[in-house]
Write a protein that binds this DNA or RNA. Structure first.
Lengths: 199, 199
DNA sequence: AGTCAATAAGCAAGCGCTTAGTTACCTGAT
DNA sequence: ATCAGGTAACTAAGCGCTTGCTTATTGACT
């Protein structure tokens, strides 16, 4: 028996509400956003939110989770793209920076609304963030071991690399630099930070 | 006519409430904090807040304003400390980083709660932020003009220098690195970013 | 006839802030 | 020393409104 009705309609509306939540949370913060804001941004009544999502926090969790998983995936792809730590760093920083430009609204929620998550959801996000940190850390360590990177304080370099990408979500606003232009500049800066021999 | 009573008592209580607001806003955000939170953190009744401060937004404004002014002052001091752009950058980045470690709670409010300010107060903060940006920008330009700095994209270097300092407010938590240890590392990284001849 | 997206109406709780009053202390006349 | 009178810090109670979310119902489609 085939599915009745248009099975896509509910999913499309659900996604539209999620998108409205991203926009609202990014602009006014989780606690500064009301469920009525989200509903009206999506062009629906306040109760419509609860037809498709179980709570306001659940919306935040969905946004946070997929945002964190996207970042982890794009960094894993970078490490898998080459055997050379220099090339791995290039791709990692490029992907990381480009993502924080293109998805700067959801990235703002991912990085600045952690405190609004429920305890179990927060714990899950912190686990992913730890994986991201280890990935950057191992990458830098491999570069140092191979002699490609030279830096007096690797741990601080790792923090700096992440800071540069994450902070894009804070300062970037629509009409300005192009994403790949920023990413190019950040690759150059990253190589300098880790003391890569040739830039 | 000499002043009656202890004139310091009211000021001390006012400051205590402000400090409670800093703690609460930094932990839960402006919109996530209630005036009752602030009052109870300061060990007072909800109404006490309004004896000393005119509104919740006024508290945010005070915190934001003095935080912004502190940063501007410490950067001006850095520029005035020497004629040499390299030394100016060293001191500027050191002061900037150290400030964001030591005052990381108020710095979190300064950098991540701008959207919660009223329009006129926001405009005032954006003016100070522009001055800070120009100060970093001019410093890097002088270094390039003197041949001390070499970087393909000065504007991006300026953004990166500010990002590194500001993002400390996001990731730093009490027991960890020492403020001057972080500052040392960040001076080294900053010199690499601008391509200072000797590090 | 049955299913489900969507809404109108509204509830209990919590919000920023106010009002009316209490308490503690200082002043100056006795 | 005492004490009325005045002032200012502080609070108890609560007002009007908004919040996240629920309930009962409608209406469109199969």
């Amino acid at each position: 028996m085939p599915e009745t009705r248009d099975p896509r309609r509910a999913e499309v509306t659900k996604a539209r509400l999620l998108e409205a939540a991203v926009e609202a949370f990014a602009a006014r913060g989780y606690h500064g956003t009301t469920t009525r804001d989200i509903a009206s941004t999506a062009g629906m009544s306040p109760a419509a939110v609860y037809v498709h999502h179980s709570s306001k926090e659940e919306l935040l969790y969905q946004i946070s989770r997929s945002g964190h998983e996207d970042v982890l995936a794009l960094l894993r792809a970078a490490v898998d793209s080459s055997e050379d730590p220099v090339e791995q760093l290039r791709v990692a920083v490029r992907n990381f920076a480009e993502h924080h430009v293109r998805a700067h609204t959801s990235a703002r929620i991912v990085n600045y609304e952690l405190a609004a998550l429920s305890e179990p959801h927060l714990a899950e996000m912190l686990r992913i963030r730890h994986e991201i940190d280890v990935l950057f850390s191992d990458l830098v360590e491999r570069g140092i071991a191979s002699g490609a990177f030279v830096t007096p304080h690797p741990r601080m370099a790792v923090v700096a690399l992440q800071s540069l990408g994450i902070d894009i979500a804070r300062w970037y606003r629509e009409p300005g630099w192009d994403a790949s232009e920023i990413a190019d500049g950040y690759v150059e800066i990253a190589l300098r930070i880790v003391g890569a021999s040739a830039a």
